[in-house]
């Protein structure tokens, strides 16, 4: 079984994330980046599925679309234990929206002949969480999304999804698209052995031409959404802070709630 994890390289959420002033796109080159934390759960799921298999020809590939530095996201996946990597990189991709990104991923997944496509629940930068559904739509594959527990039983993939109103069991048949939540598992840390082994693992670099896509089909010029304005949120003005002494904290709190008409 060919298992492919779609992984995203994102600006570090704890660093100073910003937009490029010239085109209002997320600055991915000028800031520290890494594999989106939420995609680590997808890598872990893929590795667990492979390990639970019969040890046959199951292999895990990390697929990423992004600038040069995005190779780091692939590397992290390989260090965790994936077998191979594919990095789609092309200057024309800059500025692609979710619709265009899903097109690039779909072409790459078709080329890889993926049986099981695994996504995290969303990225930690854009955070739309829509790409798995778009890829499923484009490839005509079933999608079982936001799994908090995943079991693969022969050709059947079954997940538990803890939704807002119910806990559901959802299943589909391979090949399919799966996305997992951060409740699905505890992602492993790369071991020293894993880090060394990753250096020898094959990573292919593909351009748009390799996927039979033209620059006009992707990137900022073809994006169907346009950011008109980006405004930094004004810092919150400093509030009142009191130290609780013999119930003064509770009294102050209730007074604040009362003054602001929350009671």
């Amino acid at each position: 079984m060919k298992i492919v994890v779609c992984a995203k390289f994102v600006p570090d959420a704890t660093a100073d994330r910003r937009f490029r002033s010239e085109d209002n796109t997320v600055d991915r080159a000028g800031v520290d980046g890494l594999l989106s934390e939420l995609d680590e759960y997808a890598v872990e799921t893929a590795l667990t599925v492979k390990e639970a298999g019969d040890g046959g020809d199951d292999a895990v590939t990390i697929l990423t679309v992004g600038p040069e530095q995005a190779a780091d996201a692939v590397k992290k996946g390989l260090q965790m234990g994936a077998d191979a990597g594919v990095h789609v990189v092309d200057d024309a991709i800059h500025g692609s929206d979710a619709v265009a990104t899903s097109l690039i991923l779909s072409k790459a997944l078709a080329k890889l002949e993926a049986d099981l496509v695994v996504f995290g629940m969303g990225s930690t930068d854009g955070g739309m969480g829509v790409v798995p559904a778009m890829v499923s739509e484009r490839l005509g594959l079933p999608a079982v999304t936001l799994g908090s527990e995943v079991t693969v039983d022969g050709q059947t993939v079954r997940i538990r999804r803890d939704g807002d109103t119910a806990s559901e069991t959802i299943e589909g048949t391979l090949p399919l698209v799966l996305s997992v939540s951060d409740q699905a598992n505890e992602p492993r840390y790369p071991s020293f052995k894993g880090i060394m082994a990753a250096k020898k693992k094959p990573v292919e670099t593909w351009s748009l031409a390799d996927l039979e896509l033209t620059p006009e089909q992707v990137g900022g010029s073809s994006a169907w959404t346009e950011v008109v304005e980006v405004t930094a949120r004004p810092p919150r003005s400093a509030g009142t802070i009191v130290t609780d002494e013999d119930g003064s904290g509770a009294a102050g709190l209730v007074e604040f709630l009362s003054t602001n008409k929350f009671l």
């Binding site: 009142t240 802070i241 009191v242 609780d244 904290g249």
Partner: peptide, 12 residues
């Protein structure tokens, strides 16, 4: 915060 209490939530 607009209003903060430094204290033990189990008391406050």
């Amino acid at each position: 915060v607009d209003f903060g209490v430094v204290g033990d939530l189990h008391k406050v």
